[in-house]
Simulated scan of single mutants.
Amino acid sequence: WIERDIGIEFGEWDMPVVDKVTFQSTNPKIFFGGDAAWGPENIIWAAAHAHQAAISINKLFNGEDIYDRPEPESNLVSQKMGVHEWSYDNDISQAKRFIVPHADQSISLKDIKVEVELGFDEKQAFEEAQRCLNCDVQTVFVEDLCIECDACEDICPTDCINFIDNSTEEDIRKNLRVPALNLDQDLLVSEKLKQTQRVMIKDEDVCLHCGLCAERCPTGAWDMQTYLYEEAKIY
């Protein structure tokens, strides 16, 4: 459906050759994104491609370098609302993923129009939602506020917080309360703490983001902050 005589080169799968940074085709005035550029992708990626292409088009019209991309916006916002109040649910659930109910095979195999997955009822949906790890909420530790009472270490349900003497990464990983065996996951290591010169080490691999450390901390050294990352857009 794309004209072949307007200066656009085509590559694998007969798709237009598109720059993955600027979304510009080999015809400098034509931009692509989404399925038209790289085949089937979800609508979230397609929308992101459109925003990036819009930035390129705006820069092209203004005679600017389209490779000079604006930085994305990111920030952290505390979720603390009061002394013991937070703007997210920090319930700890040990439940495993709930199985979505299915229609009886004796019915679904007879009629292709029958919906196979029945979905959760209200109770099941609520219980499944309680498994949320609040992945957008980050644990933020401020060394200068820590009095090394170790209350956070004591209350952590997964033993992901440790106060130990600093050492080599290999020794640290072996000596944590729960050994950190996943070498692809960096550890959060604080500066030396004032009272004992120990360091606080947190293993994100086993953190539930439950916020109990922040609730228990008497000095506010721990905080739960929502992380926002947003690509630059042109409106």
Rank of each mutant, 00 (worst) to 15 (best):
E215W: 01
L60A: 15
Q225K: 08
P72D: 05
V100M: 04
Y227N: 03
K194H: 12
W38A: 15
N90P: 12
D5F: 03
S190I: 05
G33V: 06
V21K: 11
K80A: 06
Q225W: 00
A214M: 06
S25Y: 04
A50Y: 00
E215I: 04
Y67A: 02
N166D: 14
V83A: 14
L133W: 05
N166C: 05
L193S: 12
I201M: 04
A125E: 11
K174G: 01
S56A: 13
C217S: 01
T158S: 08
S87F: 01
E127K: 14
N162I: 02
Q185D: 12
C156W: 15
I43H: 09
V206Q: 03
A103V: 11
K96T: 14
D150E: 14
D159I: 01
D203E: 08
R4I: 10
I30Q: 04
D223T: 01
N175P: 06
L228F: 10
I44F: 08
S78L: 01
P16R: 03
L183H: 06
C135T: 06
T168H: 04
E122I: 09
I112N: 07
M200V: 06
S25W: 02
F10H: 02
T226C: 11
M15P: 00
E115F: 00
N58A: 15
S78N: 07
S25N: 00
G119Y: 03
T196F: 03
V114K: 10
E117D: 11
Q197Y: 09
Y227P: 05
E73L: 15
H84K: 13
C217T: 00
P218R: 06
P70V: 04
R131V: 13
L188T: 05
S78I: 02
N27L: 03
A46W: 00
D150L: 11
N162M: 02
D14A: 14
I155G: 07
